[in-house]
């Protein structure tokens, strides 16, 4: 039962990772469950997070990252790394969120420890190939 274990571990080591109120806690429960769910495809998850972070900095809290951000970062790492420039621009909310999370000091240290490389993300619009004017 991975969700129970990870929530319990977070509550024992850094309770702030579980959110600051009941609504945030429920959001973190939702996204933590989705991270481990065998019926949620990574690309669907990417699109869901893209919608969620359209106008927010973090997944579950206004002021700081939570367990949901950390687990989603780890689950989506491979998927984000495989996006083409065009796909990345289309999913620019989640790419912007991912880039912000992967550069947090504590995340860099944890990612290095488990062998997750920094993903190069270009948030600029892809260049359009225009026909040459003769």
């Amino acid at each position: 039962l991975p969700v129970s274990h990870v929530l319990q571990a977070a509550s024992e080591t850094n309770a702030a990772l579980l959110g600051s109120n009941e609504f945030e806690k429920a959001q973190i429960l939702e996204w933590t469950t989705k991270v481990f769910s065998p019926i949620v495809e990574s690309h669907d998850l990417l699109e869901q997070v893209n919608e969620l972070v359209r106008s927010t900095t973090f997944v579950g809290q206004d002021v700081d990252f939570t367990l949901a951000d950390l687990l989603l970062y780890a689950r989506l790492h491979e998927t984000v790394a495989s996006l083409s420039a065009k796909e990345g621009y289309k999913l620019n909310n989640v790419c912007r969120w991912f880039d912000f999370i992967q550069h947090q000091e504590s995340v860099v240290a944890a990612a290095t420890a488990v062998g997750l490389d920094t993903v190069e993300i270009d948030l600029n619009a892809p260049k359009i190939q225009r026909p040459a004017i003769v």
């Binding site: 609504f23 429920a26 939702e30 469950t33 359209r54």
Partner: peptide, 10 residues
């Protein structure tokens, strides 16, 4: 922008 979209979490 603040929502929960999982029935168990709701």
């Amino acid at each position: 922008s603040k929502y929960i979209s999982d029935a168990n979490a709701i």
